[in-house]
C-alpha cells in the first residue's frame, strides 16, 4: 500500500478514498487516493504521463463538471465540508480555489481587464478598489513593473512568460485560499520557467499550492511535499527532501532514478 507521510502543518485539504471515473471510461482513472494537502506550503504531484496527476488536480476545483458524465467517489474535505457533494456551490468553490493552466490563457481583453475579471465577476464595481487590487496582484505576481505603463493594451501582446504571470495575477487577485498549478511552465522557456518557480515559492506565504509537473527537478526545487502517482494511484507522499533522497517505495525510487517514465 501507499506510504503517506504525516503533515505537521494545518491541512488545507484532505483527500479521502477519492476515486474518479471519466464519462467515456469503464474503469476509474484515479483509485482510492487519500492524502492531506498542507496549508501554506507547496505540494507537488509527479509521475509519468497518464498517471492521473492532472486529473486529480482538476478534481479539486471540480473542473471535470464542465464535461458531463464524469463521476467522483470518496471525499475531498475543504473547510470542514465535502466539496464533492453535488450541492456544492461551484462558483464559490472556484473563487476560493484558483487554477493556472498548462498554457498561458490571457483572455481577449486588456491587461487591466484580465486581472480585474475575477473581481468584476464578484460584483466589485468601485474603480479605485479594482485598481488597487489589480496593482497588488500584478506586484505579487512580479509583473507590475513590466506592464504598469500599458495596462490598457491587449494582453495577447505579452510574451508567454509574462502572460503566465498575468494569469497568476488574475488568479490571486480574487485572494483564493488554494492555488492549483497544472504544469504551469510546460509551454515556457527556461528563464520564464525560473521566474514562475520563484513566484510559486513566494506565493505560499499567502496561499496553499498544489502543483502538477512532469519535471522532477522542478518539484524538488519548489515543493515542500511531493506525491508520486502511478497508473491512477498515489504511491507515495513525502516531504520533498525525504522523498527524493530516501524514497520509501521501490516504484518511487525507480521513477526518480530514471528507470522508467
Amino acid at each position: 500500500m501507499a506510504t503517506i507521510c504525516k503533515v505537521s502543518e494545518e491541512k488545507a485539504l484532505e483527500i479521502k478514498k477519492f476515486q474518479f471515473t471519466y464519462a467515456s471510461a469503464d474503469e476509474p482513472s484515479l483509485k482510492e487516493i487519500s492524502m492531506p494537502i498542507a496549508k501554506n506550503s507547496v505540494t507537488a504531484l509527479i509521475g509519468p504521463s497518464g498517471c492521473g496527476k492532472s486529473t486529480l488536480l482538476r478534481s479539486i476545483n471540480r473542473m471535470h463538471d464542465l464535461y458531463p458524465g464524469n463521476k467522483y467517489e470518496g471525499e475531498i474535505i475543504y473547510n470542514g465540508r465535502n466539496i464533492l457533494n453535488p450541492k456544492e456551490d461551484l462558483i464559490d468553490l472556484r473563487i476560493n480555489i484558483g487554477m493556472i493552466f498548462q498554457k498561458p490563457t490571457a483572455f481577449p481583453m486588456s491587461i487591466m481587464d484580465n486581472v480585474a475579471y475575477g473581481l468584476k465577476l464578484q460584483g466589485i464595481k468601485n474603480k479605485t478598489e479594482i485598481k488597487d487590487r489589480v496593482e497588488k496582484a500584478l506586484t505579487d505576481a512580479a509583473i507590475w513593473k513590466e506592464v504598469k505603463d500599458r495596462l490598457k493594451h491587449d494582453a495577447n501582446g505579452l510574451s508567454g512568460g509574462q502572460q503566465q504571470r498575468l494569469c497568476i495575477a488574475r488568479a490571486i487577485a480574487v485572494e483564493p485560499e488554494i492555488l492549483l498549478f497544472d504544469e504551469p511552465t510546460s509551454a515556457l522557456d527556461p528563464i520564464s520557467t525560473q521566474g514562475i518557480e520563484e513566484l510559486v515559492t513566494e506565493l505560499k506565504e499567502k496561499v496553499s499550492i498544489v502543483i502538477v509537473t512532469h519535471n522532477m527537478q522542478q518539484a524538488a526545487r519548489v515543493s515542500d511535499y511531493t506525491g508520486f502517482m502511478y497508473l491512477g494511484e498515489l504511491i507515495e507522499l513525502g516531504k520533498t527532501e525525504e522523498l527524493f533522497v530516501t524514497p520509501a517505495e521501490k516504484l518511487t525510487e525507480e521513477y526518480i532514478t530514471g528507470k522508467f517514465g
Partner: peptide, 9 residues
C-alpha cells in the same frame, strides 16, 4: 441579492 446570486440568475 449578492453579486454572485445575480450572476447566477
Amino acid at each position: 441579492m449578492t453579486a454572485t446570486q445575480k450572476r447566477v440568475l
